[in-house]
Computed example of a mutant assay.
Amino acid sequence: MPIDHPHPSYEALVAEGSSVPTEGWDFSWFEGRASEERPSWGYAVAKAERLSRATAALDVQTGGGEVLDFALGKAAATSKAPRLVVATEGWPPNVAKATALLRPYGVAVVASPEDAPLPFADAAFDLVTSRHPVAPDWPEIARVLQPGGTYFAQHVGPRSVFELVEHFLGPLPAEQSANRHPDRERAGAEAAGLEVVDLRAERLRVEFYDIGAVVHFLRKVVWMVPGFTVETYQPQLRALHERIESEGPFVAHSTRHLFDVRKPASHA
């Protein structure tokens, strides 16, 4: 007869979710505990292809460098990695992690706050990339791109995972995430003199299988529920734990959009 192992307690799950380090953008800990449908365009692989055609590339808000590391590895396998690659990151633990991870490729990781001007000369890069920037600074992106250069990025869209956010914060006005809307971001890019070559958006299924995964997610993605702590949100956490235990995984939806943007070539 198979042994029926008891489920971990609420307290054990919360303690586990509270203890896992949060630096970097490696989400492997969530394996078997949460899942997220991936966009159809396969950003990391597409980014590798763009890097293979670039000569000087900048990765903005690189996190722990994981996506850039993957993309550079694929580009290097074809012997077509750019001769110059730099990255920016604003959170000190991620700066350290990205520096160590990307050092084998000769990538310089520059500590730069996300809301500061990019610390580079005008027209320094023919490719600028970013995965999930807090907010794209279109005038700065346009400034550092060479004429004819490309910004290729995956952004977080409006009301992403809001089913979870609103469980903790209650109903939120649509305007709260309007600045992430792809149409508004397109207008920002065009106002900075950039040409939007391609813009795609998708809504994707997210599932949380236990409350430990929810705790770790909210600690890691800190802008979802600002100021989140287990102590502050104990009632909401317990209610969600009981809901998952009785009904199964908690389902939310992420939103993502892909920007392929070009700086017009100079006219003679």
Rank of each mutant, 00 (worst) to 15 (best):
E207T: 14
E166S: 12
V45L: 13
Q236V: 03
K97R: 15
S254P: 10
H181I: 04
R53K: 15
L68A: 05
P21W: 07
T229A: 02
G157Y: 03
G170E: 12
V95R: 05
F168T: 03
V165S: 01
A34N: 02
F125M: 01
R33F: 02
F70I: 07
L194I: 06
S130M: 06
E185Q: 15
Y105P: 01
N94C: 10
V165L: 10
R103Y: 07
F30D: 03
P173Q: 05
P133Q: 10
V215W: 06
R159H: 08
V67C: 07
T129W: 07
D26M: 10
P82F: 03
L68Y: 03
F125Y: 06
L58V: 04
L58Y: 01
R238K: 11
Q146V: 09
L145F: 13
I211V: 12
A121D: 15
P171E: 12
S79M: 14
H132K: 12
V85C: 15
P264I: 09
P119N: 13
H253V: 09
V20W: 00
V128K: 00
S35M: 06
P8R: 13
T150I: 15
R180H: 05
E49L: 15
E202L: 11
L258V: 05
E175C: 05
A34S: 08
L13K: 08
S266M: 09
D69E: 15
A252V: 14
T232V: 04
D69K: 13
A191Q: 15
